[in-house]
Design a protein around this nucleic acid. Structure first.
Lengths: 259, 259
DNA sequence: GACCAATTACTGGTCAGACCATTGCACCAC
DNA sequence: GTGGTGCAATGGTCTGACCAGTAATTGGTC
């Protein structure tokens, strides 16, 4: 795109416009992560703003951790791009598939605490909502045929979410939410397989029922214990699944090598 | 500390120092929420910096939503103090100042598990590193005078980080890291005050020592327990500090200088 | 030729003073 | 009282200068 032709609207909020413009250029790939962007004086010329306004604009980007500035050197585009969604975790995942189990370990901890707090702090309205979510899920899971796995996963998630919300700790809710999203986005296929098999499904259903009962009845310690057990068994099931998958993959790789 | 005698260290990072100074004054109640603070030109005189640097400092505070600026009017202290702006968790914090303690609650849980796993899984090299970090921090904390709080906070963080890394769970490390960053970015000034007082500092130092011993000796349950205790007492100290701050807010001792 | 020190041409960081645009209030005519 | 009007104060922007680091170039030495 032509960089020289974009000028900044003059008058008010010039630094904001500067920041927005540079952010746009970065997102469009004109300036790439790790790259050194033009000097302040050069940017002033291009954007037709004073250096003071330009610097305030850069200050905005710096406070958003989008650029990194060193005196005598220049400003570089930060390697991990803007905010939102735990991008760093994604990278972790790509490099080490083992982190799946690390993730489940942390999630178990948070789910356990979540269930514990829900049992202790949950209001009557929380309990009603938890029960409703549980019944929706149980009713859907009851029909053996014509079962959409994605829909079941959604109901499952809604049930766990209702419990975490009853903990009345927004930080806990959010952290748990991020981890769950990450888990589902990366290994949804595996979870799918889990639901498809009758053995695991029956075990999960039973654990859900016990979890529901413990939380609603206010038995905090028991709720934590069941939640931990639940996540632990899911982890074990996935581990078995992975082992199975590995065997298949290895035989496939051997084939590839020779063909 | 009389404000007229605090000048901003010249040379490097002037805007950061300006922002830190104003943040401190706000936290001490010299400038109260909703209040209009002095004009930019007057602040320049008092802080002995140029208007450009002062404006960049104000820009920092504005991007943290600590102040609100209107042309022709002035800058007012935002009604809700820090705690916004940073990562994904932000949206939650707007309406709930209480989330600070929610955050500490979650962090305690993760720190506890982290210490537990570190004691169980930590290799001999992990233990060496943890001990080194602990000694660095303890040595620095030992000198009563000439103590940079920021440096101490860094060493403190390095110690806890070493422990979490010994858990060999990257997801746990990352989640903990995010929460800690968030905590420090929002209430660093408060944490600063914590370090400045001899009572809390002594307690924190002792807890660090016990935590170190438990982790290095491999006593997992004990490590978890001490970590939980540690975070709980920090939470309580911050709660007291908050109450005290409320009281300070009512005193207008050094107000005349500013109006 | 290989290596090291000094030079130099950049970079961001800060400052000073000027002018513009908006706001709010005191003042004044009605 | 009410409603304009002008003025003073505010933040917003610009210009041009100088300071302070950085890194590549240069030039000398071995």
């Amino acid at each position: 795109m032509a960089f020289t032709s974009d000028d900044i609207p003059m008058g008010r909020r010039t630094p904001e416009h500067v920041a927005a413009k540079l952010e746009e250029l970065i997102l469009e790939g004109v300036f790439r992560p790790g790259q050194l962007l033009p000097s302040e004086r050069r940017l002033c010329e291009r954007l037709k703003v004073s250096r003071a306004s330009l610097r305030e604009g850069l200050r905005i980007l710096r406070s958003k951790a989008i650029i990194d500035t060193r005196q005598g050197h220049g400003s570089t585009v930060a390697s991990l791009l803007p905010m939102h969604q735990q991008a760093p975790l994604m990278h972790l995942f790509r490099d080490h598939p083992r982190t799946l189990f690390d993730l489940l370990e942390v999630r178990a901890l948070l789910e356990g605490e979540s269930a514990y707090l829900a049992a202790r702090r949950g209001t009557s309205m929380d309990r009603v909502l938890i029960t409703r979510r549980y019944r929706e899920m149980a009713a859907y899971a009851a029909q053996p045929e014509s079962l959409e796995v994605e829909q079941l996963a959604r109901l499952d998630h809604a049930f766990h979410l209702a419990i975490s919300q009853a903990s009345h700790n927004p930080v806990l809710v959010h952290t748990l939410q991020s981890l769950t999203d990450l888990l589902l986005s990366s290994v949804f296929a595996s979870v799918k397989h889990l639901y498809h098999r009758p053995g695991p499904r029956a075990m999960i259903n039973q654990q859900h029922e016990r979890l529901h009962d413990a939380v609603v009845s206010g038995d905090a310690e028991q709720a934590r214990h069941i939640a931990l057990e639940h996540l632990t068994s899911i982890s074990e099931l996935l581990r078995e699944l992975e082992a199975e998958h590995d065997r298949l993959e290895r035989s496939a790789m051997r084939l590839e090598q020779w063909q």
